[in-house]
């Protein structure tokens, strides 16, 4: 996946091992262009510190499982879609937010019991980039 070269400074996150090659390719290309890059390998980048220090012109490049990327996107609400590149390595698992108690549960199932209130939930197509989660609601099943 091509890197967004219109930015001035960059942050790169590779959440899991599968994300590493694409993140390294991004970093290599940006260093060739002489652009400042900060990089993090692993699921818990210091995103808040990065975003506080960054100035307009910054781009965030994220690679990893969809559920992790959605959570990171939710924490980077200050950025526009045009300032973020997402590369999904795996979309089997989803984070599901319970409509009743708002607890987030990570799952690969289409129907599950909420980890917070135990509600039997169906997972909907609805995805919130603010909550970084799919909607789950009561299912009679």
């Amino acid at each position: 996946m091509a890197v967004d070269e219109s930015g001035r400074t960059f942050g790169i996150v590779a959440v899991d091992a599968a994300a590493r090659p694409v993140a390294e390719a991004w970093g290599t290309r940006l260093r060739e262009l002489g652009r400042p890059v900060q990089t993090w390998f692993g699921p818990a980048p210091p995103l808040d510190a990065w975003l506080t220090a960054a100035r307009v012109g910054y781009r965030l490049l994220l690679a990893g499982p969809e559920a992790d990327l959605l959570a990171l996107r939710a924490r980077a609400g200050v950025l526009l879609d045009a300032e973020i590149t997402l590369y999904v390595t795996d979309s089997r698992e989803r984070v599901v937010r319970c409509a009743r108690c708002r607890t987030a549960t990570r799952t690969a199932a289409a129907v599950l019991d909420c980890a917070g209130c135990g509600l039997r939930m169906a997972v909907h197509d609805h995805v919130s980039t603010v909550h970084g989660a799919h909607l789950g609601s009561w299912s009679g099943a």
């Binding site: 219109s6 001035r8 400074t9 307009v56 012109g57 781009r59 526009l80 045009a82 300032e83």
Partner: peptide
């Protein structure tokens, strides 16, 4: 602004 990396949406 474009040279400084500002996206058009800003």
């Amino acid at each position: 602004a474009a040279r400084a990396g500002w996206p058009g949406a800003r």
